[in-house]
Design a binder for these strands. Structure first.
Length: 581
DNA sequence: GCCGTTTTCGGCCCGACTGTTTTCAGTCG
């Protein structure tokens, strides 16, 4: 059992306790512990072996015992008993918008509803509205919530949500009376996927109604979910939920910080404010104990921008991408925030396909696009011969491509194509090209494209064997395509990172919107082990090259600094690096 | 269930909106 599985069980225990009506703080303790465990960088097995679990903040005696039991026996009696005491369908019911643990508990206690299907039937028969605390409107919302759940279960990819948000932002910005206007929420934090879009506006009071109307009557609105004085919520035809919040301009920086989140980051910021004797909310700082609410808040500190808020708390400015309560507040206090990568820092990239294998554009077109982006180099990495499904090159075609690249390079001035390959790691860990061909290439990306159903131990062994090959430069998409599931595979990333450190290999962080291989914890671990990451688009066309930027958000979450990323090196350094590799 | 320069008990982040009530509970972010 790994820490991720432990974290999932702890989270579920927290939710199950909520459904049983347990002390909310006890429930929260489990949720907090789950998050802490899942983001742990130390080896949990080692911590248990050394009896050091309780050194972790939020893990006390009870949780330490439970985690130890889970790790040592693979089971937890407390969890099994808890699960037996409630029907499994209750957890799924919590996904219905507007239903929380209290309402689900009532539905179960009074009507014996155990599944979403039973809930839908009961609501259709108007049995739900008859319950105490429920009504016709709640019943209607439950039915709509179930429909919506079926229709919009998925989250939205960053680039799609960003395009949508920009269109709405453009409309809001041009409204009369608007002072400041920004995207907030997970979109501002550049999460890989977005739940809903949050837009924040500051405006003159007289303009609020007019702005809200402009928002709710936007041409792409499918349905207006809520419309109030400060907040409106719409569902777009593209099935993206979008919230607009209006505040006055004095409140704006506080609201921007608040609605940018994350929730966990905000909780920590409030705790910190409390230590200074202030209460922090979306409208300002106020003195603890004062009864003032919105409208007559006596601001203890005036803040015109978000920067001022951080400064008031003696923190350096925390970029939105880092606001996940993953240690950024401590780092901001001690001046140790990472130096984040910007799009402008990217000086080239590897792992790009052409129409020689399964790409769409020609090598010429890809090279031109890279130069337009201002890059110094572009790596060509078409598939190898075993990747028949992807039109993998045969020996002769690869040799021809190497020659073609040499020829092209003689025509460039401040740009260079690098000849590479995305070589298949075969099921036994050997490579699809022999060493004679591999040594002729500038770089070699090794990746798995077959036999995804191997066990974690088997696929880890397979990858590590490939990493050991002296011609391999980097490991491509190390866990497959997680968002597509169908070709993701289990792998022990800690072992893989250790091997990459031992053999001096690069690990690729694919930034194609459908592929997010490494999460921030592994990036952080890779950094500790001094393993270089490369942000690669796995671009199959010109447009794909622009997606490198989408990966930058991920890299930021990984606390990867410019110096830790291959793509920020100049061509000269890249060539030196490749020679060494 | 966790935590403590207010440490073994009492507090744990905070406000808007909705729908249900007639002053508030539940949900959400």
């Amino acid at each position: 059992m790994d820490k991720q599985e432990i974290a999932e069980i702890l989270d579920e225990i927290g939710t199950l306790l909520e459904l049983k009506g347990e002390n909310p703080f006890k429930c929260r303790a489990y949720h907090n512990a789950s998050r802490t465990i899942s983001t742990l960088t130390q080896d949990i097995k080692e911590l248990v072996a050394q009896n050091r679990l309780r050194e972790i903040k939020g893990i006390g005696e009870a949780l330490s015992d439970k985690i130890t039991e889970l790790l040592e026996t693979g089971r937890l009696g407390y969890y099994d008993d808890l699960k037996k005491s409630l029907p499994p369908g209750l957890l799924a019911m919590l996904n219905v918008q507007g239903l929380g643990p209290k309402k689900v508990k009532i539905l179960f206690d009074k009507l014996k509803i155990r599944t979403i299907t039973e809930l839908q039937q009961a609501a259709a028969q108007h049995k739900v509205a008859a319950l105490d605390g429920f009504g016709a409107k709640t019943e209607e919302n439950i039915l709509q919530g179930i429909e919506s759940l079926k229709k919009h279960a998925d989250r939205h990819l960053y680039p799609h949500a960003k395009t949508t948000a920009d269109c709405i932002l453009d409309i809001i910005k041009t409204q009369k009376g608007v002072i400041r206007c920004d995207i907030a929420g997970s979109l501002r934090r550049k999460k890989e996927t977005i739940g809903d879009v949050d837009i924040l506006v500051s405006a003159k009071p007289s303009a609020v109604k007019h702005i809200m109307n402009a928002f709710t009557t936007y041409s792409d609105v499918d349905k207006v979910i809520a419309q109030g004085e400060t907040k409106s919520s719409i569902l777009l035809k593209s099935s993206i939920n979008c919230d607009l919040r209006v505040v006055n301009d004095e409140e704006y920086p506080f609201a921007l910080a608040y609605f940018t989140g994350s929730k966990e980051h905000n909780v920590s910021m409030r705790s910190l404010a409390k230590k200074y004797g202030w209460s922090l909310n979306e409208y300002g700082f106020s003195k603890i104990g004062s009864e003032e609410k919105r409208g007559n808040v006596k601001r203890v500190i005036n803040c015109k921008t978000e920067e001022d808020i951080f400064q008031a708390l003696k923190l350096s400015f925390i970029p939105p991408e880092l606001r996940e309560n993953m240690g950024e507040i401590d780092s901001a206090r001690t001046g140790n925030l990472p130096n984040l990568i910007n799009n402008d820092d990217i000086r080239g990239t590897f792992h790009c396909h052409t129409n020689a294998s399964d790409g769409i554009n020609t090598m010429d077109e890809m090279a031109e696009a890279a130069q337009i982006l201002g890059w110094e180099y572009l790596g060509i990495a078409d598939h190898s011969k075993s990747a028949a499904y992807a039109g993998g090159l045969n020996n002769d075609k690869l040799k021809l491509q190497i020659k073609e690249i040499e020829k092209q390079n003689s025509t460039f001035k401040n740009f260079r194509l690098l000849s590479g390959t995305e070589v298949d790691i075969l099921p036994d860990g050997s490579l699809d090209w022999n060493d004679d061909i591999l040594k002729r290439l500038d770089f070699v990306v090794a990746a798995i494209h077959s036999k995804f159903k191997m066990t974690e131990v088997e696929s880890t062994k397979r990858i590590i064997k490939a990493i050991k090959n002296k011609h391999v430069t980097m490991l491509g998409h190390p866990t497959g395509r997680l968002l597509l599931e169908r070709d993701g595979y289990p792998v022990n990333m800690i072992d893989v990172i250790n091997a990459a450190a031992d053999y001096g290999k690069v690990i690729e962080l694919n930034s194609h919107p459908m592929r997010f291989d490494l999460d921030w914890r592994y990036c952080k671990y890779a950094k500790e082990k001094r393993v270089i990451i490369s942000i690669n688009p796995d671009a199959h066309n010109i447009g794909g090259l622009n997606d490198v930027f989408n990966g930058v958000g991920i890299a930021r979450k990984g606390w990867i600094e410019k110096t830790d990323v291959l793509n920020t090196m100049s061509l000269k350094n890249i060539l030196n690096f490749l020679k060494r590799a």
